[in-house]
Design a binder for these strands. Structure first.
Lengths: 167, 167
DNA sequence: TAATTTGTTTACCGATCAGTCAACAATGAT
DNA sequence: ATCATTGTTGACTGATCGGTAAACAAATTA
């Protein structure tokens, strides 16, 4: 009935995710994005609405692709909580200048944009709860469990952010 | 012999530091900067040369004003290493959306700008060494001391970055 | 084949960016 | 009072920003 798509929205979104990951929300220009995504300006806006909406969709994709597996590792994998947590931290790549899109966004756009802060905060909270769940067998005190989960979340953020500044 | 300055370069630099702290290197516009610094475009460039040089000078100022006191706390204050480290972390303000300029820069501009990455990395290294020194009495194994100092540095970064994403 | 529908392309918009520069102003020296 | 010196001002530049819209192209329907 109408002209068919000439691109795959999924792979285009994947490409956008990598641009935002590398450059951050503000530095990622529409020109960079459309080049990497292999589509033109008009198609990009028809499909994704706005730069911010494209970011939020790319962020969602990042969560599914990189955050969720980490959370599964903490909450569903075998072994003691300590083992799961060790496995989680072992998963962090060495020398990854891109860092983690979630952590980069926390330090970056989340500071000034309410919508982005909301989704970032949501994922940080998910991560903290996953640590908390992993600690259930190890530590029966809810208060201690929570503060230790907070520490572990902060340690994760610190590791990923630090890796961006390694000379 | 010539026209005298109508502004104080020190207070102008202080104002610039706060703009970079709040907005980050890229989002801080020359217009914002000159408004906050209370000087005009030409004077800004005559005094500071370029936006990046202004940032590097503002970053230096931040280090003197906020990083150095923390390092002094870790290396020169009274008590055991544990007490010093506790004092260091107690110094972190609650609910500070601005976070820490050093950590913000690590997650932000350091990822794409070599000069900024260099100065950020330098200060991260100073902080790590300060933790290491604070641990000397507590832990005599150099390897463990180093890895624990790395952990503490990452924990600090994580805490400051996380505070930017609190809803 | 003609009309309809919807994706694609690209020129264009006003705003803003970092940076420059020539006119102007305020001082001390002569 | 005039001149040399140097800080101050604000208009200006070319580039780029995010976003828009009209012309065009490719499919189905009639």
């Amino acid at each position: 009935m109408a002209r068919p798509y000439s691109y795959n929205p999924e792979t285009a979104l994947e490409a956008a995710m990598h641009v935002f990951w590398r450059d951050g929300y503000d530095l990622a220009s529409l020109s960079d994005l459309q080049n990497s995504m292999g589509i033109q300006r008009g198609s990009l806006y028809k499909e994704f609405g706005s730069k911010k909406n494209l970011f939020l969709m790319a962020f969602d994709r990042y969560v599914k692709e990189f955050v969720d597996p980490g959370i599964d590792l903490l909450t569903q994998s075998d072994g003691t909580g300590k083992e799961r947590i060790g496995r989680f931290f072992d998963m962090i790549p060495e020398e990854e200048r891109r860092g983690c899109l979630l952590c980069n966004s926390a330090a970056g756009a989340a500071g000034t944009d309410d919508d982005i802060r909301r989704v970032v905060s949501l994922q940080m909270e998910r991560l903290r709860k996953a640590f908390e769940q992993a600690l259930i067998k190890e530590n029966t005190d809810p208060g201690e469990r929570r503060s230790e989960a907070e520490r572990l979340t902060q340690l994760y953020i610190g590791k990923r952010v630090e890796s961006r500044a390694v000379v």
